[in-house]
């Protein structure tokens, strides 16, 4: 546990004084199914972005830009709420070697 801070270095009372530090925490490795997004079918309705419980949908000014796999836990809500079936859930194992 060498990387953990000692008591003199920590803020008091268990406070987290920097907002949103959980962004550093990867939840993408929970995923066993991966949402794969097809731009050609997308109408940028933003339903996936709106519902994603992990804020793993990347959008800019209501234009869908893709999926953030660092956070995506693979629940499939996005694919389910997509009115155009532009997101498909695939087994994560299909991608395990491709990323090498």
């Amino acid at each position: 546990m060498a990387e953990l801070k000692g008591w003199k270095e920590l803020p008091i009372a268990g406070l987290v004084i920097e907002p949103g530090t959980a962004r550093k925490y990867k939840t993408g490795d929970w995923r066993v199914k991966r949402p794969v997004y097809d731009r050609s079918k997308c109408i940028d309705c933003m339903m996936c972005w709106f519902y994603c419980p992990d804020q793993a949908i990347i959008q800019e000014n209501a234009v869908m830009k893709g999926i953030n796999y660092f956070y995506c836990k693979g629940c499939g809500v996005c694919a389910n709420v997509c009115p155009k079936k532009a997101i498909e859930m695939r087994p994560e194992t299909e991608f395990i070697t491709k990323e090498e």
Binding site: G20, A22, R23, D54, Q55, Y71
Partner: peptide, 12 residues
């Protein structure tokens, strides 16, 4: 609320 929370996948 930000990313990186540890609620179950699909939690409402």
């Amino acid at each position: 609320i930000t990313q990186g929370h540890r609620m179950c996948p699909g939690c409402a």
